[in-house]
Amino acid sequence: MGEENAAEPAAPVTTPPPVVDAEGKDDSGEEFSAIEDEKRFDFAAMLNWITAILAISAAVFLYLLSKDLATKATTLENEKQVVVAQITGTTYSKVEQQASSFKSAVLELQNASQSRYLMKDFLPQFYAHIAKNVVLGNVSISDNGEIDLDGKTDSYNSIAKQFLALKDWAVGGNNVLTNVELLSSAEVAGEKGKLEASFAISATIDKSISLSTADIAAVSPDPSVSGTDAIESGGTDGQ
């Protein structure tokens, strides 16, 4: 038996696997997966802490940003107070009121000027178109440009000439008076038994035609048309 045992090659010695009980402990009582668990724990913790740090950083960043905006807003509020104080101060509030009034006045003047028809330009030219032998009694000019005139002269012929003088009154090829109508004409006996021809004419002034006193020189009416003392003589006539 002993020889048989000596002849047999020595069987390889293998370490039997450790006996693991139900709790994962070997027979020595230590955890067999401690190293792996530790590695897993480190990775998860790191991830959690990175997330936590990021979240806290983001919150702090947002908080600081918000605080910064609040500070800037306060600075701007102060700046606004300074500017508003300047604006509402005596100097600039007076300037503002004055500028506002000035603007309003300019606009008003602009509108009023556009609709104004200058009698100082019309009347001298009108007189220039009244014949010397015509005595005007009444002349009325209304807001819408209607002009009515009546007067006396020596004959129907003079009335006709006067009518044509007014009808043909033109500036730059445009008639100053439109719708010229002879409303009435009659011959009556005057104070000394001399015949007088009375008349009434109506017309409409074309206010779009610009007249100026300089145009008087250019007026070339009938030689008998004299002008400026027409009304004056009308006055002396006692109409």
Partner: peptide, 24 residues
């Protein structure tokens, strides 16, 4: 003078007549 005045006047209507004293 009225139409050249610093204060702005706009003549809307005008009636001209003579009187017995020779005035207008």
């Amino acid at each position: 003078s009225l139409e050249n005045d610093l204060k702005f006047f706009s003549v809307k209507s005008l009636a001209i007549s003579g009187n017995k004293e020779g005035l207008i």
